[in-house]
């Protein structure tokens, strides 16, 4: 669709001699075919593993389906139940808290880290090390922190004891559980996020910095007046990716708290899993998934609009 645009002005030229036999359309037809050929494998994967399950999930959300017997159409029953389900609303609130802590801390720390790497080092080894936590499996990371933060036997509470603090039930206390899980994932994703931002920093033209240096701008001023504005499209992309990823928090909860204590870490994805695979209520689980899908689509769209991700300030 986008490829059609550039040809239009060329065809509109008055003085252009009209060729008797224009080879371009035929050539372009071949290009389309080749493009389709290249897109096909990805398209098949997309249709089979994304489009079809999404549509089927949408259908199942209107049914009473226990996975093992056939689905009965039940209209809007699942959605009506959703409105009155306190556990669901609580899970949305819990997830929101998680996303807020996770994203704010992670973005801030990653930006700081990326700027530090950008300004201070060229070392590839160092960049590699920063990425290390991201290379460890989610489950392993969760288990390691779970043991380290154990109330009775964990090394973290041992160290807190040395400096005179009482032990903290990081995973067992209702008010600590979500911040703890959020920080575990900050630890894991920090390097990756920083690297994405770092890539964005490298795309900012050096001339701008030279000009700023000539004008005598300080480091802080350069950061706020040059780096941050020029980084905006990349930051928008990073935010969209990390926020959506953050909303889908599941594995750390499944490995450590399983939704508890009480309902303190019953995040939406875990509640969906619980409904579907523990309670065999696939229809209801699908309805929650559809709502989550709509929320995420809305969040992503709002972010892109607000951060004007498709425009650059750099010309």
């Amino acid at each position: 669709m986008a490829t059609a645009a550039p040809t239009a002005p060329a065809a509109a030229g008055d003085d252009a001699p009209a060729p008797v036999d224009n080879p371009r359309p035929r050539w372009r037809g071949g290009e389309t075919r080749a493009a389709l050929l290249f897109v096909a494998p990805a398209m098949v994967g997309f249709l089979a593993f994304f489009a079809w399950p999404t549509l089927r999930g949408l259908y199942l959300s209107f049914t009473d389906y226990d996975l093992l017997t056939s689905a009965d159409f039940s209209g809007l029953d699942n959605y009506r139940r959703l409105l009155e389900d306190e556990v669901f609303w609580n899970s949305l609130w819990v997830t929101l808290k998680y996303v807020a802590i996770n994203i704010s801390v992670q973005t801030f720390a990653a930006l700081l880290l990326a700027v530090l790497i950008h300004r201070l080092t060229r070392s590839v080894v160092l960049r590699g090390i920063i990425l290390l936590p991201y290379l460890i499996s989610n489950v392993v990371v969760a288990l390691l922190w779970y043991w380290m933060a154990d109330y009775n036997l964990g090394v973290i509470n041992e160290m807190l004891g040395w400096v005179g603090f009482d032990p903290v039930a990081f995973f067992g206390d209702e008010s600590w559980a979500i911040p703890t899980i959020a920080m575990v994932n900050v630890w894991r994703h920090l390097g990756y996020t920083a690297l994405l931002i770092f890539a964005g920093l490298q795309m900012i033209n050096r001339d701008v910095y030279e000009a700023a240096a000539v004008d005598g701008a300080g480091e802080v001023r350069v950061f706020f007046r040059i780096t941050l504005p020029l980084l905006r499209p990349v930051m928008a992309l990073v935010m969209v990716l990390t926020v959506i990823g953050s909303w889908q928090i599941f594995d750390t909860v499944a490995v450590t708290t399983q939704g508890g204590p009480v309902d303190a870490t019953r995040v939406v994805q875990y509640y969906i899993y619980d409904q579907a695979f523990n309670r065999f209520d696939f229809g209801y689980a699908s309805a929650i998934s559809v709502v989550l899908f709509l929320i995420l689509a809305g969040v992503a769209l709002a972010q892109l609009k607000l951060l004007r991700a498709d425009e650059s300030d750099q010309s």
Partner: peptide, 10 residues
């Protein structure tokens, strides 16, 4: 007996 918060762990 440990509190509910303190018992979570190994």
């Amino acid at each position: 007996m440990p509190s509910f918060a303190a018992q979570r762990g190994v």
